[in-house]
Amino acid sequence: MSALGELRRIKGSTPPKQRNQNRAAFLFLLPWFLGLALVTIGPMAASLGLSFTRYNLLSPPRFNGIDNFVRMLEDERLHTSLGVTFQYVFISVPLQLGLALLLAVALDRGLRGLSFYRSAFYLPSLLGASVAIAMLWRQIFGVDGLVNTVLAWFGIEGQGWISNPDTALGTLMVLNVWTFGSPMVIFLAGLRQIPAMYYEAAAVDGASRRQQFWRITMPLLTPIIFFNLILQLIGAFQSFTQAFIVSGGTGGPVDSTLFYTLYLYQRGFANLDMGYASAMAWLLLVIIAAFTAINFWASKYWVFYDDQD
């Protein structure tokens, strides 16, 4: 990584070790602390408490120990929903991020009409959560949808992609990838944040464009890639709206799109079993936290912060 060494050289000496800045930090964090104390912690603690109760929303909660957690061990639909969610996370998140990064780089600059393309690629993200999306999706992946029409031109007989248990989850992954506009926007902003002086210095040293891309752009973009990864990971684990809308809230066909939070919602609100839903939520929190922690640990090896020394 000679280019990075170069960067460090340009940056000059490292800043002196800072003294403790509790006072300033407290002031800057004050709104957040207030929010934490007043809006966030209370409901979180309440949901943790409720996870040890039988609570149907209509009557007061009743303590039932670890019953909810024991029931989770035997709940087959819960296991199905975990499987569905993991598949979704591990396939659609890398695809979406890869596409977003590729297009962010391609649409960054150097071509006319870029602002049009950016908007066109971004527009689907605006629609991603709208009630109209269910109908739109059936228009594409339905029995009489666009995909089958195109397949028919080539003499291939299609199928009902949304309603086939083997392909339904795939269409939701496509839906997620289709809304890659959000991470793309963040990448675009990240690309613009890279100081031009690094490129200049590299050019002076005779680095080729390809070298500049791999040695400057990519390393300096890693904090943003990392952020997007965490954001999409948490988002995908909590994925709810799209499956809810497309399957009409059932997670069907045959539970093939029964995301974890969709099942949690069904238990909490349709079955009025909020105690169980809260227990499920805390299991999800543990899972997400574990994956996030692994990523933070791994980030030491590939994320480059400009303020590191």
Partner: peptide, 9 residues
């Protein structure tokens, strides 16, 4: 599959 698709609509 056609039935299920319509059902969610």
């Amino acid at each position: 599959s056609a039935t299920i698709e319509r059902e969610s609509g």
